[in-house]
């Protein structure tokens, strides 16, 4: 997706965000100390969409809250636009727009009022009318917040994060609760915002979202960075066998194919495993595994109804580096304290 990008791209100047060895622990009353962020480091360059990806409870929100100066870190350093938000939180307020995970407005304030009043907080202001236009909110300008749909609330939340003309926008779980069409629309919007020159820090537990949007990302699990790079670097870096999945409409065809391929696996070094799963046959092996499978089945005239090569996603990266299946809500304790 890097190829389709237009407008401002990442540059090589000093990083906009610099997080080093960040650590944050909580002590719940009477309980043991809980480590929310154990050791997180990353840099964000100007003009990129940078992702912080991981399951709920991994420490993503805590990380950005420390970065924004909303929480005191227990260790490490954070720099935002060269300033220290831990020592002087007010110093970054003008230049950073933050979209928080949950709706955060009075139910009875209208879209237009919210944008106008938030605009009044900043020295530099975006034009609320233009923002409403950009976010398809113009026709809802007189609707009260409590009466907006989930998608409209989310768009307003993004608009409020941008109303102070920030250099950096932190967007936390911005598509949670949206339907697929609204998610895609929001993704396009985020790209448009980046193209207008805003550096974006995207916090998400959605693998597909990170893969689709981020120029670079870190994968966080249990408070530590377990992988980082561009989405392509991460998936290409997997030392995985190639896979082919075959589907047969009839059981007889599948049975014959299974016999043939199992036999093939014993004599052909390019084929390492054959398993039957979900009514399909998955064959793994070297880069030549597809050729080996096709040759064998063609010779016996066994014709599958569908052949797919298995592509690797960030989900596989997660499984690879953590040894666990990816479950977005495996330990939902993000908002302790």
């Amino acid at each position: 997706m890097t190829a389709t990008r237009s407008g401002a791209g990442p540059d090589d100047g000093p990083p906009v965000v610099d997080v080093r060895n960040l650590r944050k622990t909580y002590r719940v009353k009477g309980g043991p100390e809980k480590v929310a962020v154990a050791d997180v480091s990353f840099e964000v360059r100007r003009g990129e969409i940078f992702g912080i990806l991981g399951p709920n409870g991994a420490g993503k929100t805590t990380t950005v809250e420390c970065l924004a100066g909303l929480r005191r870190a227990d260790g490490g350093t954070v720099r935002l636009l060269g300033r220290d938000p831990q020592a002087a939180p007010a110093s970054v307020r003008e230049d950073v727009g933050i979209q928080l995970q949950e709706a955060a407005l009075h139910d009875r304030i209208t879209v237009g009022e919210a944008l106008d009043v938030f605009a009044s907080f900043y020295e530099r202001r975006a034009d609320p009318a233009e923002l409403m236009d950009l976010l398809d909110l113009t026709e809802h300008r007189n609707v009260q917040f409590g009466k907006l749909s989930g998608g409209q609330k989310q768009r307003l939340s993004i608009a409020l994060a941008l109303v102070g003309k920030p250099q950096v926008a932190i967007l936390d779980e911005l598509t949670t609760g949206l339907d697929p069409a609204a998610r895609r629309a929001t993704w396009e919007l985020v790209e448009r915002v980046r193209d207008s020159g805003v550096t974006i820090l995207l916090v998400t537990h959605f693998m597909d979202e990170a893969e689709r949007l981020c120029d670079r990302l870190v994968v966080i699990d249990r408070g530590t960075v377990v992988a980082q790079g561009t989405p392509t670097e991460l998936t290409d870096g997997l030392r995985r066998d190639r896979g082919v999945r075959l589907r047969f409409a009839e059981d007889t065809g599948r049975g014959r194919a299974l016999d043939l391929l199992t036999a093939l696996a014993t004599r052909d070094d390019d084929v390492t495993a054959v398993v039957s799963a979900d009514g399909e046959i998955e064959v793994t092996g070297t880069r030549k595994v597809l050729f080996a499978v096709v040759r064998e089945l063609a010779a016996a005239d066994v014709v599958p109804d569908d052949v797919r090569t298995v592509t690797h996603s960030l989900e596989d990266v997660f499984v690879d580096v953590t040894g666990r299946q990816y479950r977005a809500d495996e330990n939902d304790e993000e908002n302790v304290a």
């Binding site: 007010a90 307020r93 727009g97 949950e102 955060a104 139910d107 938030f118 907080f121 409020l160």
Partner: peptide, 17 residues
């Protein structure tokens, strides 16, 4: 308390206000 519950106070804390 509703400001706190709805995150209005937290949201404002991210702005210059």
């Amino acid at each position: 308390a509703t400001f706190r519950e709805k995150g209005v106070l937290r949201r404002l804390a991210t702005t210059p206000m």
